[in-house]
Structures are given as structure tokens and as C-alpha cells.
């Protein structure tokens, strides 16, 4: 019985084995070739998702398309761009006549925007990120009638950095870009923003 087994395992197997090694070598080379092709396009740094706010059209999909609930996209506020207006089009619903902080006058659906008196006639607006859902209502208001100091950014406290961002997939303006992870924000009102505008 034992003899038979060794006999069978003799010549044909070695030929098959040699063929197997040859094909394995070819596949190895193919993997190497694929690696070599992308080698010039390889970056040492990991990339993260971010919103290019110059492309954003405030469609509101960031609030609903994110895999994280509430969305990892938050409203950021560039204070040095803000006019500190009494009538803030990001804060008040259109048609508001008296500018006070009663809830029915707020544009923000989640009460995430805070309004604080600084000095006559200036008011400061701050975003409570825990409440913000990234719906971009305030961004649209400020962008259309004000200085545009509200803008959307991916908050990396919440973003899980999917391989393909599901908001990027649904974004009509291709505003989602990949940035190197050591420079993960496109902040407004900062000098380093200027060269990035192109």
C-alpha cells in the first residue's frame, strides 16, 4: 500500500509542481508590475476627506448622506471674516423683523447657533458642534447675504474616513477632496488659504 502511494506521487507531480512555480513567478512579477506602476503615485501620508468650501453650493446633502449620525460635517465659523451683524442671515429666518433670540426666529433646525451681544451694534455667533448636523442652512444664508463666514468642514473628531466618502458620492459639486492627514482642514479667513484657492 505504502509503495503504491510513493509511486503515484512520483513523476507527474514534479512536472505539475514546476509548472506551478513558474506561474507563481509570473503572478509575482505581475503584482510587482502593478506596484511599480503606482509607485510614482504613492504618497507616504494618509489622506483624509475635506470639503473645498469654494465649490460647495449648500445643497444640504451633507446632513443626510454621512455614514455617521449626526453627520461628521459641521458648520465652521471664521470669526475674522464675520461682520458681527445685528441681522445675521445665517441666524434668523428670512422675514424676521425683531432681532432677538426667541426660538421661532432661528434658522438653525437644531438650535446649534448661539448669539451673544458684544458691543453696539455687534453680535457674536458661535456654533455648538455637538448640536450641528451640517445642514448648511446658516451657511447658505450667510453666503448669499453676508460675508460668508459660515462654511462647512469635515470635523475629524467624528469622521471615520471611509475609503469612499458616501457624501462625496452624493455631492453635486465634487467639493469633497482628499487632503494629507497632517493638514486636514481648509479653513477660511487664513492666509494659507489663498494659494489653495486655485
Amino acid at each position: 500500500m505504502d509503495n503504491q502511494i510513493t509511486e503515484n506521487a512520483d513523476t507527474p507531480i514534479t512536472r505539475r509542481e514546476a509548472l506551478r512555480k513558474a506561474v507563481a513567478g509570473i503572478i509575482f512579477l505581475a503584482i510587482g508590475a502593478a506596484g511599480f506602476t503606482v509607485f510614482g503615485r504613492t504618497r507616504k501620508k494618509r489622506t483624509v476627506w475635506q470639503i473645498d468650501h469654494t465649490k460647495c453650493i449648500q445643497c444640504g446633502r451633507c446632513a443626510t448622506q454621512c455614514v455617521v449620525t449626526p453627520s461628521a460635517v459641521k458648520c465652521f465659523h471664521a470669526f475674522n471674516v464675520c461682520g458681527y451683524c445685528d441681522l445675521c442671515f445665517g441666524y434668523f429666518r428670512p422675514g424676521t423683523m425683531e432681532f432677538d433670540t426667541t426660538a421661532e426666529k432661528e434658522l438653525c433646525p437644531t438650535h446649534a447657533l448661539k448669539r451673544k451681544f458684544i458691543e453696539e451694534p455687534y453680535y457674536e455667533y458661535t456654533v455648538d458642534k455637538d448640536k450641528c448636523i451640517g445642514c448648511s442652512k446658516c451657511v447658505k444664508g450667510c453666503q448669499t447675504f453676508g460675508n460668508g463666514s459660515f462654511y462647512l468642514q469635515v470635523d475629524h473628531e467624528h469622521c471615520v474616513n471611509c475609503n469612499e466618502c458616501s457624501i462625496a458620492k452624493a455631492c453635486p459639486s465634487n467639493a469633497f477632496v482628499r487632503l494629507p492627514s497632517d493638514n486636514p482642514y481648509m479653513l477660511k479667513g487664513q492666509t494659507k488659504e489663498v494659494p489653495r484657492r486655485t
Binding site: K44, K45, R46, V48, F76, H77, F79, N80, I118, E119, Y122, E124, T126, Q153, D155, H156, E157, C159, N161, S181, D182, P184, Y185, L187
Partner: peptide, 15 residues
């Protein structure tokens, strides 16, 4: 002499 509030942004998972 009001100063702009300073906001710290959270950095992503380090490379």
C-alpha cells in the same frame, strides 16, 4: 477690545 474666540480643530488619526 473683544478678541475673536479661538477654536481648536480636532486632528484626524495620526499617520
Amino acid at each position: 477690545k473683544h478678541q475673536h474666540p479661538v477654536v481648536q480643530h480636532v486632528q484626524p488619526r495620526p499617520a
